[in-house]
Design a protein around this nucleic acid. Structure first.
Lengths: 255, 255
DNA sequence: CGGGGAGTTGAATGCAGTCAACAAATGTGG
DNA sequence: CCACATTTGTTGACTGCATTCAACTCCCCG
């Protein structure tokens, strides 16, 4: 892990701000809020950001790269709870219990903006809108968790995989389109095993589902790149309503 | 639904306060916070509190009875997201998006303390600790969701059922012990079908698992009453660590 | 006493897991 | 730049857990 504390980039011009916590705030509130930030941290692929059982010291806004949040199981497997993408807010625990219930690991090389948690209490007192912004984000996180839970509990493997791929695709596309990129393929740094660990399936079965989806031309996926040519068709397989999924996955923060 | 606005019971003496939102606050902050409350609502068993798609108007603290939070699926089934017990905080949406992502239905006759959501912004500005308290509760809700997700995604049916029964048993016991009751059996108003809907299993299979658990003397369950004689043994079947589960299920709010 | 919801049982089906082997892609050091 | 090691992806055969469907019982409530 490398840490930078000097000459941090300005939040006002941040390319991902609209997708992040501060996207919830008005521009004229940013000066107050930005004082929260202490540094930017960089982790290499495979490095742990924190471990289950750790006491949360800093909250993070993911600036670049993907992070996996997961729990370890007694049998040696892991349950992936969430894939964090740029803009996501991680490791915020303000109550009495600051013990993390999960671990976090960098999938690719990642950059994070770090905010010491003890600063939040004071800033919230001065800027109640920050508390509202954080609440909104908790809300979205919970709703996404509800949505995964629903898919995982009550749909067959093909729908589960389709749901996860489509969710990640939609989120990634909205990010790269913010950057002025309109390619249909998005970078997709996770493995089939990761997908299995997120959905409670074996990597082998995920692979079989992938091949089905490919056969139906619903996905193109190679070289860590994913394309979903027909989102509407994919949504059908995923057994979700496409507009609702888009609202949940992108319209959520900020806009 | 019946609503009472006059002569509401005092929060200071509330039997479930330690398990609820206001259990997070100091006694001397209660006067400010209590002004949030507008009325107590009563619903009969089977009545809806709100529907998926509704705009949240009031948040609720569940005062008495059980509530099921769920999503409807295209195939006519429903996915239960959470069983709410006395002390639970429901339907709080303070951000821009106030559309509920799930419905809520009363399992038994229930009483709720209602708090118009628009009052929260002002109160938070005056009482930042309220924002912290709400954040703590969101946290716990998310952690419980992570825990269910993990169980549902990666354990066989017997572990899933054991997990759910044990969680509800622990929560109910802690509530009745607060009231000075030390019976080992707790009231258990839900059906095997409800359990199936929460875990993504058919009621038939839940029934088979119940019979196994009974054969092993891990549960006694009849007349809407549940006893778990050996929590430690049950935790083993549920593939969870009993102390951690207790922390998550009861130590969470307040104490 | 009758009706309906909840719980119970058995037999047949099918989705996803397991095990084992191999192929392709990626990364590393010589 | 190539050789080798490791990780990731792919395929097939077999097994088993949970679903489905259908029938039936029990219990509660009116």
């Amino acid at each position: 892990m490398k840490s930078v504390t000097q000459n941090l980039p300005k939040c006002q011009q941040c390319a991902i701000r609209s997708a992040a916590l501060f996207g919830e705030l008005e521009t004229n509130q940013l000066d107050k809020a930005r004082a929260l930030r202490s540094c930017q941290n960089m982790y290499s692929a495979g490095e742990y950001l924190y471990y289950e059982g750790d006491t949360a010291q800093k909250a993070y806004t993911l600036y670049d790269g993907w992070v996996i949040l997961f729990k370890n199981l007694e049998n040696g497997n892991r349950q992936i709870l969430r894939f964090a993408l740029p803009g996501d807010f991680l490791c915020y625990k303000i109550g009495k219990n600051r013990t993390m219930d999960h671990s976090a690991i960098a999938v690719s090389d990642v950059t994070l903006c770090a905010f010491p948690i003890e600063r939040f209490r004071d800033t919230i007192a001065q800027l109640p809108d920050l508390a509202i912004a954080i609440s909104s984000i908790s809300d979205i996180t919970t709703e996404r968790c509800h949505s995964s839970l629903t898919t995982i509990a009550s749909h067959p493997a093909e729908a589960k995989v389709a749901y996860l791929l489509l969710s990640l695709y939609i989120r990634q596309r909205s990010l790269i389109m913010n950057l002025g990129n309109s390619k249909t393929c998005v970078s997709f740094p996770i493995t089939q095993e990761d997908i299995g660990d997120a959905l409670g399936l074996t990597a082998i079965h995920v692979n079989r589902v992938f091949q089905n989806l490919r056969k139906q031309s619903l996905i193109e996926c190679k070289n860590k790149c994913l394309t979903i040519p027909d989102e509407e068709a994919m949504a059908k397989v995923a057994k979700v309503n496409l507009p609702s999924l888009k609202t949940l996955m992108v319209g959520a923060y900020g806009t």
